[in-house]
Amino acid sequence: MKAATKEWLCIAGMLGIIAFFYFQLPDEAEAGSSLFPGMMMFLMLGLTAVKAVTELRFPKRDSGKAKEPFPLVRVLVVVLAVILYIAAIEPVGFYLSSLLFFFLVTVAVQTTPRTPRALVTRAGLAFGFVIFLYILFTLLLQVQIPKGILI
């Protein structure tokens, strides 16, 4: 994507954020409670206008350097894995879900060959990390952790 197009998309995004917050502000809100957010939105609108004027006067140029392709699939896999992990913490329990997350996500996104030795090492690391968390949070700090199916 060209640098200038990216900047204009960015300006559109800034306007989108302001519009999103503006339409969420309750109509019946008392003047006091909407005054400060209103001021912030007004400021953001002003800054967006300044950004647009700057872009018109001094359009951003491409650096000319070739960029590496963005690893979208790998990033999406991690995002999905984190969502599943957060969803699993309460029903499955923190330690078990952390163990599974650590092992599965590191295996799923690794770019080197998945040899049996690498998998065993990864499983050992995941287990060791979870034991460390158990010692720190449950034994030493006695923090309440979701136990899930282990109750």
Binding site: V78, V82, Y85, S98, F101, F102, V105, T106, V109, L125, A126, F129, L133
Partner: peptide
């Protein structure tokens, strides 16, 4: 490893 640890 860092990525998974930081998330947890």
């Amino acid at each position: 490893i860092m990525m998974a640890s930081v998330v947890i």
